[in-house]
Nucleic acid binder design. Structure first.
Lengths: 346, 346
DNA sequence: GCATAAAATGTAAACGTTTACATCGAACAT
DNA sequence: ATGTTCGATGTAAACGTTTACATTTTATGC
């Protein structure tokens, strides 16, 4: 079965301490002894059990990343950023998924305990109590987009409010006033922030938002498709649909196509996140650009700041700004169209 | 810092064995004692150190997955399949990346040792010696697309040869005879298998393949873009490009667009893998469909077969068939065009 | 050759957990 | 009251590794 340090020591005729010294690069070992041990190590194909090592050293040189899901372009981009930054530090990355379930968050956190030196959590369902109950005191934790204000944990949050406000301002600026929105779920804080941004843009333009243009989705492509079908059934069709993420925008595009309508000629569509697929769509999707990859890098940088300063730095709370990536899925509406629509809605 | 079982035992006034019995659901503990312990556990927020537990129990209920990279749609789909199947078995999934580097493969394998009960490896650079040197004897290993024939390890391989042959047969069947190919790299076995399929299709049609239509790429979008630019510079432009993966096909599409050509009117394009983005492209990409997600599920099923039968089953070697996903990026060429082209190439 | 210092190596305990076997206490039978 | 059995609990050793301190060996100086 597994070769242990004891077997190497026995065969090399030395103590386990000496084998450990050789394995870990201590210089106080005679060259001849060293060679003899290395030879046995190679012969027996010994590799240390890092779990046992972690137990005694109380550190593992690994970072945990807990995501709601492991697939999909958004998370894939987060992972890419985290992975690059962790690798740069020559640490290992442990990726796990909570499947958006509180029980599974607990299970994943428990599993990571003793196995990671810090943990990055990106999960909407997470709360302080859950973290404090399941993680050792002092373990560095960086929250990604968790909308959780706790002074113990670093947090990095996308400015969903600002992004949505800017997108809607852009749409209003190119003449749209009847803008439907596909939300992300009643209890989702991100969705609530984006909705607030949507409404704020109207107010900032001296206009009122229309609640009957707010539709429910759950951030999946299928829910975007369904919501868009409802939008298209309205007596007075909106001139634009703003989906709170790109996957729902993709679904909305499908429904619009099926209805025999053209984008953006008949109706404009835009999304949020600017995941890689956005530029491949036809027409290419206008989207609130989130520096997803950079999110991951930032999280890792916070982690290493914490690890290297051993509690001497206080938790940072970073709001990550978004930008608009204007492509071809939205078009300007002329003033005549605009005015007639505004009068009829009042 | 961390609460240990000793602290719980002390506060509850029992031995660590009794605490362990309660934590692990043994019934031979008095109800009153049990309650007292559970109360202390909650109060001290004790969670077991699973690394220590794994040391004594010699199993961790975790499966390792080693991929060349963690991002990108292909790997994201593999992860999705693996994650679902592992979760179904109530095990944990540890995902790690080798970045296509032998040293990093070794480091990742060493890191997983003692932390996983089995490991799924998907890495072109892997060889038997590497695995045997870095993993404990008896640890179940499932190879995904490694083109490595070793009787100790289960392996699951995509039928790249058959898929490429079928795609090229399809292209030949709709009139294309000048079919350029964008390969995946000189040392890549997958690319070599697909090239063999490409050539076999010509032979099966009683035709000869043309080596000057074989271009080098490295499975990235950028390399597909460059290769396609070379293709388009040929004096006699091919009527179709077959890229050995979808990412390179995406790159090729970009180059074709830049050259002011239309797909499929001026030139047809097809890819391999049928990753999710394929259907969003314009025109939607014709691609060799690989059941990526199912690959992951199959690998996990093999793992659990091995774990539950404790060496009593022999290694399985599965060749996974592909299908063609015909979309709109390829078009039929008429017979007159076809014949004149064939005569001039002879 | 002896004493001292430095280098090399070994011993024992630690890390946090699990559990086989030992021990103790309670209940029951005689 | 004594002996036996069963249930509850504790003790000690294990898992594989690291390392502080102890011990041994080697090299150097007189």
């Amino acid at each position: 079965m597994k070769t242990t340090i004891k077997q190497v020591a026995e065969k090399a005729g030395v103590s386990i301490a000496t084998v450990s010294r050789v394995i870990n690069g201590f210089e106080n070992v005679n060259a001849e002894t060293r060679e003899r041990i290395m030879k046995v190590v190679a012969e027996l194909k010994y590799t240390p059990n890092l779990a046992a090592r972690g137990l005694i050293m109380k550190r593992t040189e690994a970072i945990g990343l807990l995501l709601p899901d492991l697939h999909g372009e958004f998370f894939s981009e987060v992972i890419r950023g985290v992975d690059e930054a962790v690798q740069r530090q020559q640490y290992h990355l442990l990726v796990s998924s909570s499947h958006n379930d509180t029980k599974e968050i607990e299970a994943a956190l428990r599993f990571m305990r003793g196995r990671v030196d810090a943990i990055i959590v990106m999960s909407p369902q997470v709360d302080s109590d859950l973290l404090l109950s399941n993680l050792p005191k002092g373990l560095p934790v960086v929250l990604l987009n968790c909308h959780l204000n706790n002074p113990h944990f670093d947090s990095i949050v996308i400015d969903g409010f600002g992004g949505a406000r800017d997108m809607v301002s852009y749409l209003l600026g190119i003449g749209h006033t009847r803008i439907a929105v596909i939300k992300g779920g009643e209890n989702n804080l991100e969705s609530q922030e984006r909705l607030r941004g949507y409404r704020t843009a109207f107010i900032n333009h001296g206009m009122t938002y229309n609640k009957s243009l707010e539709f429910d989705g759950d951030f999946t492509e299928a829910s975007g498709y369904e919501a868009a079908r409802e939008v298209l059934e309205l007596e007075e069709r909106p001139t634009a649909i703003f989906a709170f993420n790109d996957s729902m925008a993709v679904g909305a595009i499908g429904a619009i196509r099926e209805a025999g309508l053209r984008i953006p000629n008949d109706i404009s569509v835009c999304g949020f996140d600017d995941i890689p697929v956005a530029k491949y769509l036809s027409p290419s999707l206008t989207s609130v650009h989130v520096p997803i990859h950079d999110l991951g890098v930032m999280a890792v940088n916070r982690v290493f700041d914490r690890l290297q300063n051993k509690g001497k730095t206080s938790a940072a709370h970073i709001l990550v700004p978004t930008t608009l990536q204007i492509r071809t899925s939205c078009r300007k509406i002329t003033v005549q169209q605009n005015q007639s629509k505004e009068e009829s809605s009042r």
